[in-house]
Lab assay of single mutants.
Amino acid sequence: EEWMVEKALMVRTGLGARQIESYRQGAWIEGVHFKRVSPSGESTLRGTTWYNYPEINKFIR
C-alpha cells in the first residue's frame, strides 16, 4: 500500500490525528508525503487527504 487515508496511517504508524496534522503542517511535503485529491481526481484543498506511507516511513527513519 503506497497511498492511504489518515485512519489507515494511524493504524500503521501509531500516530494520532493531532500528530499527523502537526507533521502535515510542518515537516511533511505536499505531493511527497501527502496529497489532497477531490472525487473528480483533481488536486484541491478540500479533497480527501492521502498519505504516502513509504515516504513517511523513510522520513521517520
Rank of each mutant, 00 (worst) to 15 (best):
K7H: 12
T48R: 07
M10Q: 07
M10N: 03
V11H: 12
E1N: 10
T48C: 07
I20K: 00
F59S: 04
V5C: 12
I56R: 00
V37T: 11
L15S: 01
Y23L: 10
M10S: 07
A27I: 12
Y23E: 02
W3T: 00
E2N: 07
S38D: 13
T44L: 10
I60D: 03
G31F: 05
W28A: 00
M4Y: 04
I20S: 00
W28V: 00
V5P: 13
W3V: 00
A8Y: 08
G16R: 10
Y51D: 00
S40P: 14
S43M: 09
F34S: 01
T48E: 15
L9Y: 02
W28S: 00
K58L: 08
W3C: 02
K58H: 07
V32M: 05
K7W: 11
T48I: 13
R18A: 15
W3K: 00
E30N: 05
R36N: 15
T49G: 03
E21A: 12
T48H: 07
P39T: 11
I29M: 06
G14K: 05
V5D: 15
I60H: 03
E21C: 08
A17F: 07
S43F: 05
P39V: 14
T49K: 03
L45P: 10
Q19F: 04
E30W: 04
Q19D: 10
K58T: 06
L15P: 00
V32I: 12
M10V: 06
V11N: 10
R24Y: 04
S43A: 10
I56G: 00
Y23I: 03
S22T: 11
L45D: 15
R61P: 04
N57R: 13
R18N: 11
S43G: 12
M4T: 03
G14L: 04
R18G: 12
Y53S: 02
V11A: 15
S22C: 15
K35M: 10
A27R: 07
S22P: 01
Y53I: 05
W50I: 13
L9C: 02
S43V: 12
A17E: 08
L15G: 00
Y23K: 02
L9N: 01
K35D: 04
Y53M: 05
H33C: 02
S38W: 12
L45Q: 12
R24V: 15
R24H: 04
Q19K: 05
E6K: 13
E55A: 10
R12L: 14
P54N: 11
N57W: 13
P39A: 13
V5I: 11
T48P: 06
G47A: 13
K35T: 08
T49V: 15
N57L: 15
P39L: 13
K7V: 09
G14H: 05
S40A: 11
Q25E: 14
H33P: 00
I29A: 05
G26F: 12
E42L: 08
S43H: 10
F34T: 02
P54C: 11
L15M: 07
W3A: 00
G16C: 14
R36Q: 15
K58M: 06
I56S: 00
W3M: 01
R61G: 10
T44I: 09
R61N: 14
V32T: 06
T44E: 14
T48Q: 12
E2W: 09
I20T: 01
W28F: 04
Q25W: 06
S38A: 13
M10A: 06
N52D: 02
F34G: 01
L15D: 00
A8I: 11
T48L: 12
S22H: 14
E6D: 05
S22G: 09
F59V: 05
R18Q: 14
I20D: 01
T44V: 10
Q19S: 06
L15N: 00
E1D: 12
E6L: 15
Y23C: 08
R12T: 06
M10T: 06
I20V: 06
F59Y: 07
E21H: 09
I20L: 07
K7A: 14
S38H: 12
M10D: 02
T13R: 00
T44N: 13
G16K: 12
R61A: 13
R24E: 09
F59M: 07
T44W: 10
V5W: 06
K7F: 09
T13G: 02
E55V: 06
S22N: 13
W3R: 01
R18F: 10
N52S: 05
R12K: 12
P54Q: 10
G31H: 04
G47T: 13
